[in-house]
């Protein structure tokens, strides 16, 4: 009689329900393989995990692209060609506002996914809308910054440093803009199609994308702006 023929105990059912991924934080967790992770002898991984993994690979490639822009900025940082340098174009209050808004949008995005897990359509939509509005505020502030700089004659073609600055910050802004369009389509899909499996998978991917953009912004406000304030 093999081990799998034994009747499953109440204790095991409780353990699997409380800790489906067997994270190893519970002393009574045991070493039994957990289904759906794609490891051991429990068969293929859940589609949720495979979809998330695929999108994770895309995100990493996107971050590699960002790293090229970061490298270009770091190399070009001093190449001002007699024009304005980074310390002269940074406005600390605006950057602090942008950072706060984007961080809050990450928070509401996480809450929207909590509502998705509870299959609560209303709160999912409310938090997605809040995320979108905060993202819009972020893009608006960045656009305002670019316009006010351009009005002072500080344009990308002025120097290598400004090309790299507009390239890096603009690429991030473009990502947030595109993510905002994706967010609108997700709201429409949740409204019309409800929490079907593929819709939830898309919401997982959208969440990953939005949070990854916040991670990139951490790099931008540190490398570009705060080091610029410091001089």
């Amino acid at each position: 009689m093999s081990e799998s023929d034994l009747p499953i105990s109440r204790e095991t059912i409780r353990r699997v329900r409380e800790d489906p991924h067997n994270l190893g934080h519970r002393p009574e967790g045991g070493e039994a393989p957990v289904a759906g992770t794609g490891h051991g002898t429990t068969g293929p991984a859940h589609k949720r995990i495979i979809v998330g993994y695929g999108f994770w690979l895309f995100l990493l490639s996107d971050i590699v692209m960002f790293s090229c822009f970061f490298a270009a900025f770091a190399v070009q940082r001093g190449a001002t060609a007699g024009g304005p340098n980074i310390t002269q174009i940074v406005e600390a209050p605006r950057v602090a506002m942008e950072t706060g808004v984007l961080l809050l949008s990450s928070y509401t995005c996480g809450l929207s996914f909590a509502a998705t897990n509870a299959r609560n359509k209303l709160w999912t939509q409310i938090f997605l809308l809040a995320t979108g509005l905060l993202g819009l505020a972020f893009v608006g502030m960045e656009l305002q910054e670019f316009i006010s700089l351009a009005q002072r004659g500080i344009t990308p073609q002025r120097s290598g440093f400004l090309t790299a600055f507009y390239g890096l910050v603009g690429l991030h802004g473009l990502h947030v803009t595109v993510a905002g369009l994706w967010l609108l389509t997700m709201m429409a899909q949740v409204q019309v199609k409800g929490f079907r499996k593929e819709i939830v998978h898309r919401l997982i991917c959208f969440n990953l994308f939005w949070h990854a953009l916040d991670i990139v912004w951490v790099g931008v406000f540190t490398i570009v702006y705060l080091m610029g304030i410091h001089g």
């Binding site: 799998s4 499953i8 095991t12 059912i13 699997v16 329900r17 489906p20 039994a32 393989p33 957990v34 289904a35 759906g36 051991g40 002898t41 429990t42 068969g43 859940h46």
Partner: peptide, 14 residues
């Protein structure tokens, strides 16, 4: 393979 996942109702038997 699903035998090893512990057949604990609809949560596990998928």
């Amino acid at each position: 393979p699903h035998q090893y996942s512990g057949t604990a109702g609809d949560r596990e038997d998928h």
